[in-house]
């Protein structure tokens, strides 16, 4: 199977056009579901896994609605798999050669259902900006429709039963991807993130569990899934995120009024390097793009558009570069190609 043509196209939610997009890049709702009387993927045999996958793909929801396209993980190349992870459409775990693991993705790439990951089904809805409620409504509906044809493992006491007890109950993981350069710059970030964890939320890097933060982007999500309703979980995340947005905005304002020369110099230097560098690492590029994005959002730079920058944050990742410029992993070309792609996009946009 070739998903090549779709590979380098970026989904609408990645471009970052949505409410509060100066700080919230995107949001995601994920629901974990399992079929009853069936072993969880980690324990099921190949034949059983294949039956599970077929059952899910043959539901009316998948066959008739949403224009979902099926991608079987083992049928695509390693680069294409990594691209799916870089776009945050799936997890690295899902791609580790599990038999019968697959993804159902719609054309807009804002609905992505993982099959046979840790759980039989993981419904994901992704949206640009800060729109948790509409993402939840969409996911809730897909779940309702899938349930018309599938019997989910459910207990009155423990709710939806998941392979790992951390996902029990609602099976809901709601998350927002926030861009917090000013808070990081003023060293207030750790304090803030510490406070967040006391409110039942978890902070992670850009690629979820186990990943480091890059480009001042943090993923904030609910920690517990059992004992609160979906709406309560989402409201809590929303309330806390709103406060974080407020903090970040205030810090940006203070930076502009109290340390204007220093902060504008930093932003313009970052811009300069991105415009003219001939070779750049992913880490440095992310940091500089983050500063330039802040510069645009703060009105320091007005000749660029943020959509281009949000896209660059994905396009400069290793697998995306490999696919675009067709070189082998480990070749020295990555940093050179990254710099040239950034220069080209910056020039077009300015």
């Amino acid at each position: 199977m070739n998903i090549g043509d779709q590979n380098l196209k970026l989904s609408q939610w990645i471009s970052g056009e949505g409410p509060q997009q100066d700080i919230v890049l995107s949001n995601r709702i994920r629901l974990a579901r399992n079929l009853e009387k069936t072993a969880f993927p980690g324990r099921a045999g190949r034949e059983e896994l294949s039956k599970i996958s077929k059952k899910i793909r043959e539901t009316k929801e998948v066959e008739n609605k949403n224009n979902l396209k099926y991608i079987e993980v083992n049928n695509i190349s390693p680069v294409e798999r990594k691209i799916l992870v870089e776009k945050n459409l799936t997890s690295p775990f899902h791609l580790q050669n599990h038999p019968e693991a697959g993804l159902l993705i719609n054309e807009e790439e804002n609905i992505c259902i993982m099959i046979n990951e840790e759980d039989h089904i993981r419904i994901q809805v992704l949206t640009a900006g800060f729109q948790l409620n509409s993402s939840w409504e969409k996911a809730d509906k897909i779940d309702d429709n899938l349930e018309k044809d599938l019997d989910f493992a459910f207990s009155k006491k423990l709710g939806y039963l998941s392979a790992c007890p951390t996902n029990l109950g609602t099976g809901l993981r709601a998350s927002v991807m926030v861009h917090l350069p000013a808070l990081n710059f003023t060293n207030n970030i750790n304090q803030l993130l510490g406070a967040v964890s006391q409110l039942g939320l978890v902070v992670r890097g850009i690629y979820g569990e186990g990943s480091e933060s890059a480009g001042n982007i943090y993923q904030i999500s609910n920690q517990v899934t059992l004992g609160n309703s979906e709406q309560d979980i989402i409201d809590n995340l929303k309330d806390v995120t709103l406060q974080i947005i407020e903090e970040e905005r205030n810090t940006r304002k203070r930076l502009l009024s109290e340390r204007k020369n220093y902060v504008t110099d930093r932003i313009m230097r970052a811009y300069g390097i991105l415009r003219y560098a001939r070779k750049i690492s992913g880490e440095e590029a992310m940091e500089l793009i983050s500063q330039v994005k802040m510069g645009i959002d703060m009105g320091v730079i007005d000749s660029l558009d943020t959509k281009m920058l949000s896209e660059l944050m994905i396009l400069i990742r290793p697998a995306h570069l490999q696919k675009r410029f067709a070189f082998e992993p480990g070749e020295q070309k990555e940093e050179i190609k990254r710099a040239s792609l950034i220069r080209e996009r910056m020039k077009q946009s300015s």
Partner: peptide, 10 residues
């Protein structure tokens, strides 16, 4: 882990 053992949601 969850601080609760009674499902409240959907």
């Amino acid at each position: 882990i969850q601080g609760s053992s009674q499902h409240e949601g959907k």
